[in-house]
Simulated scan of single mutants.
Amino acid sequence: MRRRIIWVRPRKEKNISIDRGRIAEKLEERGKLEERGNYEVVVKTGIDFGLLKLLLFGRYDCLVGTTRIGAVAGLLAKMRAKKVFIDHVDPIEQFRVTDGRFKARVVEGVENLAFRFSDAVFITNEEDKLRVSKRAKKMIVSRLGIDYKSFANTSKNAIEKAESLLKSKDINIRDKIVTYTGGFEDIYHLDKLVLAMKLLKDWLLLLAGSGSAEDKLREIVQKEGLKNVHFLGSLNHNFIPGILLFSNVCVTLCETPRQQKILEYAASRTPIVAPKKVKKMFPRVQATDLEPGEVASNIKKAVKVPDSWLAEFQAETQKYDYEKVADLYEFVIKDLLL
């Protein structure tokens, strides 16, 4: 009988970017191939009654749990003595900033238990390495993942979709465009980016995504009378490579060093403006302070970044392709399970 692997991931905004579940989907595809081995992968998003029933009473041999909710699922699976792998992506400090200290303390405790009882922990962030290493039986350093080919070689379909979307919003694709893709939360400092547009009258800002800070951002746009800021809404991830192709500069003001969006921007060979803390991890970004004037100034500087930098940065992102990241997960899971 084929071994059954359940992969539980958080219920995040799926239309902002290609999420962590793509690694699970790659394994799901491989499990269907006879030559790849005797396993199947079932991907579950969020915890509901159906998943609880499966975890407590259903048939499976192994559980992979991604960040937060995955830790809860992992503990439930361990109650039945199943193999458990925790896929720890987001540092607890990020949750503390967005959800408050009390919630973070509870979540941190649950995650710590999951690390201790799991068979292995995959970790992508530097911030929690010490915390995980103190508790996990086996800690495996992993990587964030991107669909490299989609960004490096944008398809004709993606280009046409993006062009049609931008034209429907009266956006001239020949204008100078700066783009942000992702969540709208305070941790991303998007208010600074929006205010920077006061100093970039001949630029357009495209904001693709959604989140709790959206109303505040719209208020700033209205108060400042900014006609060069456009909210695209939550887009299917298939649109994003095309949007980036029409962008002159991409921006992230989140100070977390490892960010999936930076890898996607780099794979699309677009100049990137990011905080100074990020430059330590990615030397080829145009570093900035978070003050709006500095952000505006560095957006102007970013367009002058040498093409050789963009090409080198793009080449570096190939190792983050989902296929290559999935190789590591498949090897470890099969080694400990099959």
Rank of each mutant, 00 (worst) to 15 (best):
I6N: 02
W7H: 13
P10D: 10
K14N: 06
N15F: 11
D19V: 05
G21E: 11
I23Q: 03
A24T: 00
E29N: 10
G31T: 07
G31P: 09
V41A: 09
V42I: 15
G46T: 10
G46V: 05
I47N: 04
L51N: 09
L52P: 00
K53H: 12
L54G: 00
L55S: 04
L56Q: 01
G58V: 09
R59Y: 12
D61K: 10
L63T: 00
A77S: 14
R80K: 13
A81M: 13
V84H: 03
F85M: 08
D87S: 13
D87A: 10
D90E: 13
D90A: 04
P91S: 11
I92T: 09
Q94H: 15
F95M: 12
V97S: 08
T98I: 15
G100F: 06
G100S: 11
F102D: 04
F102A: 11
A104Y: 03
V107E: 14
N112W: 07
A114Y: 03
F117A: 09
D119T: 07
A120L: 08
A120N: 04
A120I: 01
N125H: 05
V132T: 04
R135L: 15
A136M: 04
K137T: 08
K138S: 14
V141A: 04
R143N: 12
L144S: 01
L144I: 03
D147T: 07
N153D: 13
K156V: 04
A158E: 13
I159M: 15
E163D: 03
S164W: 00
D170S: 14
I171E: 04
N172R: 14
R174L: 13
D175S: 15
I177P: 01
Y180K: 05
T181L: 02
D186G: 14
Y188F: 15
L195N: 08
K198P: 00
L199R: 11
L199M: 14
L200Q: 09
D202P: 02
L204P: 00
L205A: 10
L206H: 01
A208H: 01
S210R: 12
G211C: 12
A213Q: 11
L217E: 03
R218E: 07
L226Y: 07
N228K: 11
F231R: 09
L232K: 05
G233Y: 11
N236T: 11
I243M: 08
C250T: 14
L253A: 12
C254M: 14
I262T: 02
A266S: 11
A267T: 02
R269M: 14
I272H: 00
V273Y: 10
V273T: 04
A274H: 05
P275G: 12
K277R: 14
V278T: 06
M281P: 00
R284C: 10
E291G: 02
P292G: 11
A296D: 02
A296Y: 06
N298G: 00
K301D: 06
K304I: 02
V305Q: 14
D307T: 10
F313I: 03
Q314H: 12
Y320A: 02
K324E: 12
V332E: 15
